[in-house]
């Protein structure tokens, strides 16, 4: 149910990137290269779509980031011959933390502080990418996959901010499949996925379930429209199915533009209906 024809997906996504970026009047792109699998796949697709010299990869470590992340970002940039810039966000983030008293020693509520700090990192990176996009003259390409978007495992206006997203209809399993086809360096494929927002973090530990199970449930729930009972009949634990369904529902806000109060005759996003590609 999840396995895709990787050569076809590659062809579609390269064509998609070229046309959606080209129609907007751009021939260059940039992306944050985290050292993880998603951004590595996007880097490979962008290199093919625009030529490596037209892709700018930016590694954006914080002082506590796992050094492997930056090293793996370098591996990817070298593999696809993409120019790599490094912007250390430590000064930016720490300046803010000091200003609002959000250093770790001040933590009374550990979980909330970790969440806030993680979101600040993601949003610092967004600021850097959008700022660099002006001097580079390119569009910011997103790296969010369908699994994390459905689960809401992302930061709104952080990693969730980008112009064009080639991975948004691929589950994590499919991103892995594509990564092998695109010859992403083995070290990235083997390691546990991590947002690297705090030491020792892994996505699956934080989510409380594996991507493998999440993908299996989500593809049935979303793509195949299974009911809860049908999922349970297929052998999935009801409580987990409910937990995942709740996440999908609760995070719909992250997938849509802000809600606008309709009080006039014709209102943006309600009955003023045009594609983003309108007039470009």
């Amino acid at each position: 149910m999840l396995d895709v024809q990787v050569e076809l997906v590659q062809q579609l996504l390269v064509d998609f990137l070229r046309e959606e970026v080209g129609r907007a009047g751009f021939s260059r792109v940039l992306l944050g290269l985290s050292g993880g699998i998603d951004s590595a796949v996007v880097a490979a697709l962008c290199a093919e779509a625009f030529g490596p010299r037209n892709v700018l990869a930016i590694s954006m470590p914080y002082r506590t980031s796992n050094p492997d992340s930056a090293a793996h970002a370098r591996l990817v940039a070298e593999a696809y011959e993409i120019p790599l810039a490094t912007i250390d966000i430590t000064g930016m983030a720490d300046g803010y933390f000091a200003g609002v008293g959000l250093d770790q020693s001040a933590a009374e509520n550990g979980a909330q502080v970790a969440l806030r700090r993680g979101n600040v990192f993601a949003r610092c990176r967004m600021i850097a990418l959008y700022d660099q996009s002006v001097s580079w003259g390119g569009l910011v390409i997103g790296t969010s996959n369908k699994t994390e978007m459905l689960l809401g495992y992302s930061t709104q206006w952080g990693d969730g901010a980008h112009a064009v997203n080639p991975l948004g209809d691929l589950y994590k399993h499919q991103v892995y499949q594509l990564s092998r086809h695109l010859a992403v360096p083995e070290a990235l494929i083997r390691k546990a996925p991590s947002a690297d927002l705090f030491e020792g973090q892994t996505d699956e530990a934080e989510l409380g379930f594996s991507y493998e199970v999440a993908d299996a449930i989500l593809v049935r729930m979303v793509d195949e429209r299974y009911s809860e009972d049908e999922l349970v009949d297929d052998g999935f634990e009801r409580e987990l199915v409910r937990r995942i369904a709740r996440r999908v529902v609760r995070n719909q806000f992250k997938r849509l533009p802000p809600v606008i109060a309709k009080i006039g005759q014709r209102s943006i996003n309600h009955d003023f209906r045009y594609l983003r590609d309108w007039g470009i």
């Binding site: 999840l2 396995d3 024809q5 076809l8």
Partner: peptide
Amino acid sequence: ARGVTERDRDEDGAARL
């Protein structure tokens, strides 16, 4: 264009939407 899963592949092995 839609439908890219392996079960959509052509009988002769070629990629197929």
